[in-house]
Simulated assay, not measured.
Amino acid sequence: MAAIAAEADRAWERTLAEWGAAPGTPAERDLAALVADAPDRFEWRVVDAALDLLACPDCGAPLGSGERGCGPCDLADGNRYAAREVDRPAVAPRNEHAVRVAWTVARHPHRYGPRAVCGMELSLPEVYAGRMPTTAQAQAYRRLIDGLTDAQVESVASLDELLRLAARR
Rank of each mutant, 00 (worst) to 15 (best):
P114S: 14
A61H: 14
V91H: 00
N79D: 11
N95M: 14
A92L: 03
C73A: 03
R94Y: 11
C73Y: 00
S65C: 04
C59K: 03
A82H: 00
E96Y: 12
L63K: 07
P62Q: 08
A61Y: 13
N95I: 04
V105E: 01
N79Q: 14
P89W: 05
R68Q: 08
H97R: 13
R80S: 10
P72E: 14
C59M: 04
L53S: 12
L75C: 02
P114W: 11
P57M: 02
R107H: 10
R100E: 04
V105K: 03
P89N: 10
E85Q: 12
Y81V: 02
P72H: 09
P89M: 01
R111F: 05
A92C: 01
C59F: 14
P57K: 04
E67V: 14
L53P: 00
W103P: 02
A102W: 03
H110W: 15
P72N: 10
D77H: 15
G66A: 06
W103K: 04
A102P: 01
E67D: 15
Y81N: 01
R111H: 10
P57D: 15
C70M: 01
G78L: 08
A92E: 13
G113V: 07
V101N: 05
Y112T: 13
V105D: 00
G60Q: 06
W103G: 03
H97K: 09
P114M: 13
V101L: 14
D52E: 14
V91S: 09
Y112G: 12
E96D: 12
R88G: 02
A102H: 03
A106G: 09
C73T: 01
G60S: 06
P109V: 10
R115F: 11
A98L: 13
E85S: 08
E67S: 15
C70W: 11
P89T: 06
C59Q: 06
L75M: 09
R88I: 02
D87Y: 13
D87A: 11
N95S: 15
A55Q: 11
A92F: 02
A82G: 08
R100S: 14
D74G: 04
R84Q: 15
R100D: 03
Y112E: 11
A106H: 05
P72M: 10
R84S: 13
E96T: 13
V91A: 09
A61E: 15
H97Y: 13
R107E: 14
C59Y: 08
A92D: 03
V99G: 06
Y112I: 06
A98P: 00
W103E: 14
G66W: 08
D77S: 12
R115A: 15
P114F: 10
V105M: 06
Y81K: 00
V86N: 10
G64V: 11
W103I: 02
L54C: 03
P62W: 04
R88H: 05
A82F: 01
D87T: 10
R111L: 09
L54Y: 07
V86M: 06
D77R: 11
H110C: 08
D77T: 00
A102R: 04
E85I: 01
E85K: 13
C56Q: 05
T104W: 09
L75Q: 09
A98H: 07
A83P: 08
V99H: 02
D87I: 08
D58T: 11
A55I: 04
D77Y: 12
A90D: 15
C56F: 00
P114D: 15
V101W: 05
P89L: 08
A106Q: 05
L54M: 06
